[in-house]
């Protein structure tokens, strides 16, 4: 069973711990890529190496899987898309994405069907959920365009930079993706 995929313009691949540190740091050091989660941007490259090692361990135990979206034309990593908190009993998981400025709706419409198809057909997941910091309009608009439904807002889910953060919940059930 391969976890690496390909579309016309992109490689959708699991990261390589010893090789992808620089590319991941470049992506996750941008505030715009992580503000919707919310998370602080990375400040030193060692954080990306730590993250790669953590993700490798979480993948080994099938707790999570994160794919790098690499543009074939220049080898740039334009996004990371993953699932975590996989509940194999309930057949659901949380989707998370971190997007560079070069990854918008058009790019997501190319890569997401492959990822979602794999999650639903091969892993039999029924429900994918994404949680966004309330007010992340750009992300919520793209989710709705892709077929996700807004389900509500969970209050005070975490404290971030001294603020209580509410998270909007979006979900996609099997067969609902629009591409």
């Amino acid at each position: 069973m391969s976890w690496n995929f390909e579309t016309e313009h992109f490689l959708i691949r699991l990261p390589v711990s010893d090789e992808d540190g620089t590319a991941l740091f470049k992506l996750l050091s941008q505030d715009s890529a992580v503000a919707h989660i919310p998370r602080l941007p990375m400040t030193v490259e060692a954080q990306a190496l730590d993250e790669l090692r953590r993700i490798a361990m979480r993948f080994e135990t099938r707790e999570a899987a994160f794919w790098l979206i690499e543009r074939k034309s220049d080898g740039d990593v334009i996004a990371r898309i993953g699932i975590q908190y996989i509940n194999w009993m309930m057949l659901n998981a949380q989707l998370q994405w971190e997007l560079s400025a070069e990854c918008g709706l058009e790019e997501l419409q190319e890569v997401l069907p492959v990822i979602v198809g794999y999650l639903s057909q091969d892993l039999h997941l029924h429900r994918l959920e994404m949680r966004l910091r309330t007010g992340s309009e750009n992300h919520s608009n793209m989710l709705v365009e892709l077929g996700f439904s807004r389900e509500g807002t969970l209050p005070s889910q975490q404290e971030f930079e001294g603020e209580d953060i509410d998270l909007d919940v979006y979900s996609l059930l099997k067969g609902e993706l629009k591409a």
Binding site: L91, N92, H126, R127, E129, E151, T153, P155
Partner: peptide, 16 residues
């Protein structure tokens, strides 16, 4: 009520 999570609970092989 904060949110209604569609098919958030599995009740059978293919029922939620």
């Amino acid at each position: 009520l904060a949110a209604r999570l569609r098919d958030g609970w599995r009740t059978g092989n293919t029922e939620f």
